[in-house]
């Protein structure tokens, strides 16, 4: 295996962030027209739009770093399951509104702390993207933390659903803090973010909101992992089949 160059690492690093935003935004957009009430339909679409905008900036930059002429659509539509690098949590089906809320909240907290740190990146483009993104992250975090509290301290049914959702999501949490060679190289170069630090902040923020919501954060019995190596759950293939089909049927065209 050839040695990892800093440029390869930066490409992979940026691509991972883009994949997370695209896949999570896709799952969220599935709620469009089907939300629990009109105001929240609008809220969910709004967050999905932010995530979509974020992945577009990141894909474009990843394509530039790679230098092989791939644009945002090449990266989003013409890679297979094994080439996607999002965390497993992002690709899980939308479930009920409790699952969507918990998954989104976990991602929001991660994004908030991650992008806050990424604002200090020595890579100017990533820092600039992070500065834009972090504003949305603060808003998403506030919005979803309110929902966690409402549903976590609402009715008997909502409390039960939230606990089920938390149990369901818990095995995918620790994957979000794993550090590999790419992360380490980016941290060493002053470009990337130390995920151990993000983890500590993530736990503190989640616990704080959960305390208000009268919810418990369980330690998972075991962890699932592998998204960044392209070892996904069986869910991702269906998502990509749906998302990519027009492009794959009619490749190389302008839309």
């Amino acid at each position: 295996m050839s040695e990892l160059t800093q440029q390869d690492a930066l490409f992979t690093y940026t691509l991972r962030l883009a994949d997370n935003a695209l896949i999570l935004g896709h799952r969220l957009s599935e709620w469009c027209g089907h939300g629990p009430f009109l105001e929240e339909d609008i809220g969910v679409i709004n967050t999905a739009l932010d995530l979509l905008g974020r992945c577009r900036m990141l894909y474009s930059y990843a394509g530039e770093v790679e230098g092989k002429g791939r644009d945002e659509d090449d990266l989003a539509y013409h890679r297979d399951e094994r080439e996607f690098t999002n965390y497993l949590l992002m690709e899980q089906p939308k479930g009920d509104f409790a699952y969507t809320t918990i998954r989104q909240f976990y991602a929001d907290v991660w994004n908030l702390h991650f992008y806050t740190e990424l604002c200090n990146s020595k890579d100017e483009t990533l820092a600039a993207i992070a500065k834009k993104v972090v504003k949305e992250c603060r808003y998403h975090f506030r919005h979803n933390a309110e929902w966690v509290k409402r549903l976590g301290d609402g009715t008997e049914e909502s409390i039960q659903r939230m606990n089920d959702a938390i149990a369901e999501a818990s095995r995918f949490v620790n994957e979000m803090f794993e550090m590999d060679d790419v992360d380490q190289m980016m941290v060493d170069a002053g470009i990337g973010v130390d995920l151990n630090e993000v983890k500590a902040k993530w736990i503190a923020s989640v616990d704080e909101v959960f305390a208000e919501a009268t919810l418990q954060r369980p330690e998972p019995e075991y962890d699932r992992s592998g998204g960044r190596l392209g070892l996904h759950t069986e869910q991702l293939g269906f998502l990509l089949a749906e998302m990519q089909y027009v492009q794959r049927c009619h490749p190389g065209l302008q839309w």
Binding site: L22, S29, G33, I42, N46, A48, L49, R56, Y77
Partner: peptide, 26 residues
Amino acid sequence: WITRAPSLRRKAILLAKVQDEAGHGL
């Protein structure tokens, strides 16, 4: 068609449009 839009740009345009419609409803 949101989940199947043929490009990210078209997807963003469509999402924003549907969001507008929901706002009009409101």
